[in-house]
């Protein structure tokens, strides 16, 4: 067993194991820190920055920072809430996200966060970037307009030899997600499903299947994103 440590998030006493990432330990303590790129037990990318918190006054990403004994974490402060809302708004203007026509609507983490932070009109000018749709694989669509560069697929979808199906291409303003046409031609149904499931938005979609759950009954249609983590706290009555 690793060393137990104590720390606070917005004044609330929390406990956890030293060295684990703050975002996971916070969740176990019933504190929701929003994420888009993080996936538990996968090497973090630290790329979406939506989990930005302040630890002892310094801005850090909660998904890449291990908890330390006695640290004071700020999470739901107005300053951080505004930063997170700004990141959500920024993602809506830099890509092309049309929720009503998106297959992932209701299951989309970005949309969920848009509701959580009550985004109305983004403060930033729309970029109207032209991006491609890659339909070359018989199993999946890669809808680049919706990609938020979280790298989940880059990190998690590999073949048995460790080769990547997905990778970044270019850098800076020319950055895009790309799919390996050669190996994606033979991707298994399971892996295609996994790729779609881990995508926080609707950028990766499985071909030739309908969507079983109707809009209105999907993941975030009736409960806000993060409620599962915060409800854990309520059902436990705050007990550990």
């Amino acid at each position: 067993m690793s060393e137990k440590i104590k720390f606070t998030i917005d004044g609330k006493q929390c406990e956890g194991e030293k060295g684990r990432y703050l975002v996971d330990v916070a969740a176990e303590n019933g504190v929701y820190i929003p994420v888009l790129c993080h996936w538990k037990d996968v090497i973090p990318a630290g790329s979406c920055r939506i989990c930005t918190v302040k630890i002892n006054g310094r801005f850090v990403a909660a998904c890449t920072t291990p908890v330390e004994d006695g640290c004071n974490v700020e999470n739901n402060t107005p300053e951080l809430q505004d930063i997170r809302k700004a990141i959500v708004e920024m993602l809506f203007v830099e890509g092309n996200h049309f929720c009503p026509s998106c297959e992932k609507s209701g299951d989309c983490d970005l949309q969920g966060l848009g509701y959580l932070y009550q985004m109305m009109v983004p403060r930033f000018p729309y970029a109207f970037e032209r991006r491609e749709l890659d339909a070359s694989s018989p199993k999946i669509f890669l809808e680049k307009n919706r990609c938020i560069f979280c790298k989940r697929c880059v990190r998690m979808i590999k073949d048995e030899k460790g080769k990547s199906y997905f990778a970044f291409k270019g850098r800076g303003k020319d950055l895009e997600i790309s799919m390996d046409k050669t190996i994606a031609a033979n991707i298994s149904d399971e892996l295609a499903q996994k790729a779609m499931d881990i995508c926080p938005v609707g950028a990766i979609l499985k071909k030739e299947v309908g969507f079983a759950t109707p809009i209105g009954q999907r993941k975030y249609d009736n409960v806000p994103i993060g409620a599962d983590i915060e409800n854990l706290q309520k059902t436990n009555g705050g007990k550990k």
Binding site: C48, I87, M90, F149, R171, G172, K173
Partner: peptide, 21 residues
């Protein structure tokens, strides 16, 4: 900076584009 951001942090990638504009 818009050219040279690696794009790994989406904040750096996008805000440099937005700010340049």
């Amino acid at each position: 900076f818009e050219d040279e951001s690696c794009g790994s942090c989406i904040t750096c990638r996008s805000f440099n584009m937005i700010l340049r504009r």
